[in-house]
Simulated assay, not measured.
Amino acid sequence: MNIASTSDYNVALAEFEQLALAGQKENMLRLIELRNAIDGYENAQGHEPAFPTSYAGRLELEMFKHRLKQKQLAVILGIPESRLSEILCGKRTPSLELVKKMHTELHIPANELLSLQ
């Protein structure tokens, strides 16, 4: 499937939403096809989300990618959940030790971590 215009995009979005809400397994292949076409169109139009520029944003991205809850991420990083919460809210900056754990435990490239604020 190829989306060539805004109207095609809107039709694809509507169909995707309808099929997703139906929640039927037999629609899965069509949902994947629509998802890929919608994603391709959005990327071609420059709708790709900006990469996180903060430690909090990068941690939130990891939570989303791996479907982790805040408590689970705190366990992985070996820190109290309250400390992670403060980092995610921007009240605290991560220690050097935590940044190292982000690299080793979450496999975030060191060059990315060095560019974060």
Rank of each mutant, 00 (worst) to 15 (best):
M102A: 05
I3G: 14
M1N: 15
D8S: 10
R58C: 06
L96S: 05
N43P: 00
P109L: 06
E17C: 12
E81Y: 01
Y55F: 08
Q18V: 06
A110F: 12
I38L: 14
H107I: 08
A74R: 11
C89M: 01
M1D: 14
K100N: 12
K71S: 05
L96Y: 05
V11L: 14
G23P: 11
A14R: 13
M28G: 11
K71P: 00
K65R: 07
A12L: 04
L31M: 09
E112G: 06
L68G: 11
P80C: 07
L106W: 03
S115T: 05
P52A: 02
G46K: 09
R92G: 02
N10Q: 12
I79V: 12
N2C: 02
G40W: 08
P49E: 01
A4L: 12
A4C: 08
A20E: 10
L113N: 03
T53P: 04
S85F: 02
L113H: 02
E42K: 15
F51P: 01
S95P: 04
L19I: 07
H103S: 11
L19C: 09
T104A: 15
K101P: 00
M1V: 13
E33D: 14
K71N: 07
K65I: 00
S54E: 00
L77T: 02
P49I: 00
Y55V: 00
L98H: 05
P109W: 04
K25V: 09
S115P: 02
K100R: 09
T53C: 09
I79Y: 03
E62N: 07
P49N: 03
K25L: 13
A22E: 12
E86A: 07
A56R: 02
G40H: 09
A20H: 13
I87M: 08
V75N: 15
D39V: 11
L68C: 04
I87T: 03
